[in-house]
């Protein structure tokens, strides 16, 4: 009886040790997978890619070393050498979760990560976070900012930054605009207006915030479903929307474009 209990305990411990190794290696692979499949850009700013990549390799190294230590006695195929490695017993080391549970959480989250790809945030999130054409100065300091660009070469973010430096909409009236972004239908705008938007991230998707400019259409916005990516060309005008004077793109050509590989702006 005592013997079987001991044996069972030993099997359980080795199972738990293997779950640890699998959990850690799975996360290492997942981090590197995002790098190889170019999905890292959906999650984190390119400046911090190296961090995730190093983290992935670090986890693989730790998991790999541990796996190797556990396998070594068996690989040598000398029965007596199995005594060499006795997995340290980890009773009571755990605080919040029992040992198996922690590993299972790690493994489950990693499996979900393998099967469900991260994806770009939708207009729903943008509306929830509040789209704006002001406030924003991200990493780009104003001193690095070049205003000499031709208006039609400005991206959506360039426009927002320009507005940030000099907010008077009349100053831009008549300038040509050519921007790319995704469609938002803000409930407060009339039916012939949509917002053309991009998400800006400073570090990771958790801090992504949307910026956008209103686009005036000749017809109802229902032609362009939310989250469609568009190239909008037109001329800048000033209009008063929801009680606020603001810069609006008066569109004369709108063409749908495929979702860009890296949908964020920096």
């Amino acid at each position: 009886m005592a013997f079987t209990f001991k044996k069972k305990l030993k099997i359980n411990q080795s199972l738990v040790s293997w779950l640890d190794v699998i959990g850690i290696i799975a996360w290492g692979i997942l981090l590197l997978k995002y790098w190889f499949t170019d999905q890292l850009g959906l999650l984190i700013h390119p400046d911090y890619f190296w961090l995730t990549i190093c983290g992935g390799f670090g986890l693989l190294t730790i998991g790999g070393c541990k796996a190797w230590l556990m396998l070594k006695p068996y690989l040598k195929q000398r029965p007596y050498s199995r005594k060499n490695y006795i997995p340290p017993q980890s009773e009571q080391h755990i605080t919040l979760f029992p040992p198996g549970v922690s590993s299972i959480i790690l493994i489950t989250a990693a499996i979900l990560g393998f099967f469900i790809s991260p994806r770009i945030f939708t207009s729903q999130i943008a509306l929830q976070r509040g789209v704006t054409d002001t406030l924003l100065m991200t990493r780009a300091q104003p001193k690095e900012f070049k205003t000499a660009k031709h208006p039609e070469q400005r991206t959506l973010i360039d426009w927002v930054r320009t507005l940030n430096v000099y907010p008077e909409p009349d100053a831009y009236t008549g300038q040509k605009a050519k921007v790319e972004g995704f469609v938002i239908h803000p409930p407060q705008l009339p039916d012939n207006y949509l917002l053309i938007s991009r998400f800006v991230i400073t570090c990771c998707a958790a801090d992504a915030y949307p910026v956008g400019l209103p686009v005036k259409l000749t017809s109802s916005r229902s032609t362009f479903a939310p989250d469609t990516w568009l190239n909008v060309q037109g001329e800048m005008i000033t209009e008063t929307l929801s009680g606020k004077r603001q810069l609006v793109i008066n569109a004369n050509s709108i063409t749908p474009i495929p979702e860009p590989k890296n949908p964020y702006n920096y």
């Binding site: 890292l40 999650l43 984190i44 911090y48 995730t52 989250a109 945030f121 990771c204 998707a205 958790a206």
Partner: peptide
């Protein structure tokens, strides 16, 4: 996606 982005940043 948010959850993953927090982890990708925090795990390292």
């Amino acid at each position: 996606t948010l959850f993953l982005s927090l982890l990708v940043e925090a795990l390292p």
